[in-house]
């Protein structure tokens, strides 16, 4: 039950895109087509879930015993960069179908602030190992959900008649604002 609460909190209440403003670059950049948004979302779920587990292990078994907590930013970003590289190679060898679907999005993930942000936020909240994995999965699931819904709205927006200056990104940002308002309604759920 407690794990379920963490999951809902990470997915809906403190949604990483609409409430925390992490990973906005990819949110605006990759949401033009729903198929690419889905691919990006799936790749992010994959990487954030694994990276939160790995960074938790490294933080608690390497950095804390040697009092190197101040090095966490530099260590985490290197861990994430090499993890993404490793996942890419592993997928290429053993999961060809998945690699073809997600391959293009994987290199983009290293510089996606949502991944580093999720790792740092999970450490700041001092969760246990299992809780961290659930929270990481919740955060990334929230990302995938929002970017997919947003991309379907943007596809409709392309067809509608907007003012010339507001076409494209500006009207998308205004739409994101309205979506954030809808997600604000979930804030009661956390209790």
């Amino acid at each position: 039950m407690e794990l379920f609460g963490i999951f809902i909190g990470a997915t809906l209440v403190a949604n990483i895109l609409l409430a925390q403003f992490l990973g906005i670059c990819s949110f605006i950049g990759v949401s033009k087509k729903s198929s690419s948004a889905l691919g990006m979302g799936a790749a992010v779920v994959f990487v954030i879930t694994i990276s939160s587990a790995v960074t938790w292990l490294i933080f608690h078994f390497v950095l804390v015993p040697y009092h190197l907590e101040f090095m966490r930013t530099i260590v985490f970003i290197l861990v994430i960069a090499s993890l993404v590289q490793f996942v890419e190679m592993f997928m290429k060898k053993y999961m060809e179908g998945l690699y073809k679907a997600l391959g293009v999005y994987l290199p983009l993930i290293t510089t996606n602030c949502a991944v580093l942000g999720a790792a740092l936020l999970n450490i700041d909240r001092t969760l246990s190992f299992v809780q961290t994995i659930v929270s990481g999965f919740g955060i990334s699931f929230g990302y995938a959900l929002v970017i997919f819904v947003f991309s379907t709205i943007r596809e409709r927006l392309e067809l509608s008649n907007t003012r010339e200056g507001f076409k494209g990104v500006p009207i998308a940002l205004v739409t994101a604002s309205i979506m954030a308002m809808a997600f604000f309604g979930f804030s009661g759920l956390g209790g």
Binding site: L18, F21, G165, F166, A172
Partner: peptide
């Protein structure tokens, strides 16, 4: 938070 999206959208929109 939601006001941030709106403000940025309006400013970018006016500039373009």
């Amino acid at each position: 938070p939601m006001g941030a999206f709106l403000m940025l959208g309006i400013i970018v929109g006016i500039m373009s």
